[in-house]
Design a protein around this nucleic acid. Structure first.
Length: 151
DNA sequence: GCCAACGTTGGC
DNA sequence: GCCAACGTTGGC
């Protein structure tokens, strides 16, 4: 079992949007960074992840999700109408991938970035490191348990 | 809106 | 393969 953190801009796709989806399940589309993609390909069905809201009024962890389907081709890359379109990704040779996530817990209140920074045992967390921009990052078991115990 | 940090692109 | 220029991310 591995743990992860998935970033999304809530204006684009928020945890509330996920909660309102049929089956509360959604393909995690639009990851267009190789390192983030490689992390997604390392995910296994049953892994758990934090849902992080970025570039918004209150950045932070909004809840948790479960990986319910391992990596498959990101079809949005093959849709010319999609903002995530990439002509170099094809059905025969996909460049980008999605995992399917299902809502586990929607926190009543966001665990804010300043809150996360106050916990010294989280100092090494990837998301808290200076300059980190990756939208998919691994989370250690210890980090997962500390944060999850707060809600 | 600012700006630091980072990833990607493309000329050489 | 180097690296400057550029675009993007994301907190503030």
């Amino acid at each position: 079992m591995q743990y992860w953190l998935l970033k999304s801009e809530p204006d684009t796709f928020s945890i509330e949007d996920l909660a309102n989806r049929a089956q509360q399940t959604e393909p995690w589309e639009g990851v267009r960074n190789y390192q983030a993609r490689n992390y997604m390909r390392a995910m296994k069905k049953g892994d758990l992840a934090f849902f992080y809201h970025s570039s918004c009024a209150i950045p932070g962890i909004a809840g948790t999700v479960k990986i319910v389907k391992a990596a498959t081709a990101d079809l949005s890359a093959m849709d010319p109408e999609s903002p995530y379109f990439d002509a170099k990704s094809t059905v025969d040779n996909p460049r980008w991938y999605v995992v399917h996530v299902k809502l586990v817990k929607l926190f009543k209140t966001i665990i804010t970035l300043p809150e996360l920074r106050t916990e010294k045992d989280l100092a090494e967390m990837v998301i808290l490191r200076r300059g980190n921009r990756l939208s998919v990052t691994p989370v250690s078991r210890e980090e997962w348990e500390i944060i999850n115990s707060w809600r």
